[in-house]
Computed example of a mutant assay.
Amino acid sequence: MRPVVLDEDNHCLALNKPSGMPTQGDESGSESLVDWAREDLRVRYQKPGNVFVGLVHRLDRPVSGVVVLGKTSKGASRLSAQFRDGTVEKVYWAIVEGSPKEDAGTWTDRLIKDEAKNVVRVGAGGKEAVLAFRVLERWKGQSWLEVRPISGRSHQIRVQLASRRLPIVGDLKYGASGRLSASDGGHRIALHARSLRFKHPTTSAATLVVAPVPSDWPGPSS
């Protein structure tokens, strides 16, 4: 499965990242979303030499969904500032094992990251993480949630759900009962970055980008 262009202008490029593709290069040597975008722009616009692509936020490798990139240094720096300041509205869909007691609410935890093991846990003394949620649908043994991270901590959604015995389907790292395969045979989890709402970096116009769920998404597609 390849990335899909969702929106594009002179300063921004929004892509639907497939699960299994790293957002940026890592030790695996796999093609990253940034690598793909750079080559795609070079070919489509017949650009000689290096093509600028500015990374302003990330999705975990097994997560699918919308990622916005800067096509100019001005666009990248202004988008980065919005993510850093927490003014970007991020909406995710998750399929979890189990079901929350409430239909909606907000959870606040403190998260500690083990950099060596690349895992995060809830614990005193960590950084505050705030997550709003609402239940979209319940089934036997699973639930479909809309989640909105108010803060931007590493693995935040995955950890805050797992700490409440609501692990994301397929998320073996955080306690899921079984593996979930991506369309390419790799590993994915049932977490999808559904939309981003931000101010355009040069016009300040309100911008909403919505990412359709991919074919390997295990839940509803409405």
Rank of each mutant, 00 (worst) to 15 (best):
A124N: 02
V96S: 04
R164Q: 02
R179F: 09
I95E: 14
A104V: 03
L33M: 15
V96A: 02
D9Q: 05
E31D: 12
L208A: 12
D9T: 11
L79P: 01
P214V: 11
I189C: 08
A94H: 03
L191E: 00
H155W: 04
S64L: 08
W139L: 12
Q160T: 09
A76G: 02
G175K: 01
I168W: 06
C12N: 08
I168V: 14
S64Q: 07
R179M: 14
V91M: 01
R2T: 07
A211G: 04
G178T: 07
S215Y: 05
Q142R: 15
S64H: 02
L196V: 01
T207Q: 13
D216L: 10
F198E: 08
G141K: 10
L79G: 00
E137A: 15
I150T: 10
T87I: 15
R165H: 14
W144N: 01
L13F: 03
S77M: 09
K199Q: 15
I95N: 00
Q160C: 06
A132Y: 11
P149K: 13
R84L: 15
R110Q: 06
P22S: 09
T207I: 07
E115Q: 08
R42H: 15
G175M: 10
L172D: 06
P48E: 15
L41R: 01
G49Y: 08
K113H: 06
L136C: 07
V51S: 03
Q24I: 10
Q156G: 05
R2S: 11
V209M: 04
D216W: 08
P167S: 11
R164F: 06
R134I: 06
R188C: 11
V122S: 03
P62C: 10
W144A: 11
V34R: 07
T203Q: 07
V169E: 14
R188L: 07
P167G: 04
W217L: 06
A94Q: 01
A206M: 10
E31V: 10
K47Q: 14
V91W: 00
G125E: 06
A37K: 00
H57K: 11
R134Q: 14
V119Y: 07
Q82H: 10
R61N: 01
C12D: 01
H11D: 15
D7Y: 13
R121A: 12
L191Y: 02
I189Q: 00
S80W: 01
P100G: 03
K199E: 15
R194Y: 12
S177Y: 05
A81H: 09
S183L: 11
K71G: 09
K90F: 01
W93I: 06
V209H: 03
I95D: 02
I189V: 12
K90H: 13
V4N: 04
S183F: 11
S143F: 01
K117V: 09
D184M: 00
Q142D: 14
N16F: 03
K140I: 03
L15I: 10
Y45W: 13
L69T: 08
R84W: 08
E89D: 15
V159A: 00
G25C: 13
P149I: 03
G105Q: 10
L55F: 00
K113T: 14
